[in-house]
Design a protein around this nucleic acid. Structure first.
Length: 282
DNA sequence: CTAGGATCCTGTCAGC
DNA sequence: TGCTGACAGGATCCTA
């Protein structure tokens, strides 16, 4: 999924279409995609705000209910109205006729429809009282985002998880919030640190570089619009996504490192596919 | 407490 | 062509 920059992009893009709009109807195609209540409780409510907590999007309504949306690996939010907008896991669903086989939920507005599509059914909508959003067990556990975290704090956490590979540490949302598989790889490439390095052996300077890398790569992604319909369809009409322009190592195995020209490799760390320059990251 | 592996699910792709 | 296993932009649960 959708890591922090994608969710931030979704939040910004969707605000334009659904803020101050009334939900007139809902449809649930997959029951397990809705947690903690019935989605009918939002029918007739008006959207009064959108917030983001790490990779979770929260839609606040005027009836005291909030919808937390987590896209996990393959979730997408797709708006169809006079204008179309789509963001999240890049796929042909961005352009497809909807609802389709992967549509799990839809929210109907007076001037358009918001579709929640999700190939793997890991993503979900969770119904919360607005007053209790910040007490939600997932949201409550989230650590600070890289821009708010001090080097010392991350360094201390690396000491606490001394035997874990640094990549696993970066993926743990209760340690530092917002990174996923792409940005963890990119941040480690930036810092010239091998992903399997035991976190406890990193110097303060290396931790500082990793933190700087995380900020840089995620901010660059937010600035370039994350993964949306606009970045998925290239100028010549062919498909691809913004990673092609943005990523230095992620999914670039077999291609030369942009820094030193060594061929980028794909390995496995912390149970995840991991991309490194074997020369820059020892 | 931490670390590591299995698990949830569908779809796609490489290798027989 | 058809089958099989591996694996995927995430997080949780279980075990040691």
């Amino acid at each position: 999924m959708p890591e922090l920059p994608e969710v931030e992009t979704i939040k910004r893009g969707l605000t334009k279409f659904i803020l101050n709009k009334k939900i007139v109807q809902v449809e649930v195609f997959e029951g397990k995609s809705v947690k903690n209540g019935e989605l009918t409780s939002v029918v007739g409510a008006i959207i009064i705000g959108l917030r983001r907590f790490g990779k979770a999007l929260v839609i606040d309504l005027d009836n005291g209910i909030s919808l937390m949306v987590h896209l996990r690996m393959t979730g997408q939010l797709i708006w169809r109205g006079k204008e179309n907008y789509a963001a999240g896991h890049p796929s042909e669903n961005f352009m497809a006729e909807l609802p389709n086989k992967q549509t799990r939920v839809l929210l109907k507005f007076e001037d358009g429809v918001l579709y929640f599509n999700d190939q793997r059914k890991f993503g979900f909508f969770k119904i919360l009282k607005t007053s209790e959003v910040e007490e939600d067990e997932f949201i409550k556990k989230l650590a600070k985002e890289p821009w708010k975290m001090e080097v010392n704090e991350l360094y201390d956490k690396c000491q606490r998880h001394a035997k874990a590979p640094i990549k696993a540490v970066l993926l743990d949302q209760t340690i530092i919030c917002g990174l996923g598989n792409i940005y963890a790889d990119e941040a480690l490439f930036f810092a010239k640190v091998h992903p399997a390095t035991k976190a406890g052996t990193l110097s303060e300077k290396q931790v500082a570089l990793i933190l700087e890398g995380a900020r840089e790569v995620m901010q660059a992604s937010i600035d370039s619009g994350g993964s949306t319909m606009a970045t998925y369809v290239k100028a010549d009409g062919t498909r691809g996504d913004y990673l092609e322009k943005f990523a230095k190592v992620f999914r670039r195995d077999g291609q030369p490192c942009p820094r030193c020209g060594t061929i980028i490799e794909k390995i496995r760390v912390a149970g995840r596919g991991t991309h490194i320059c074997p020369e820059c990251q020892k």
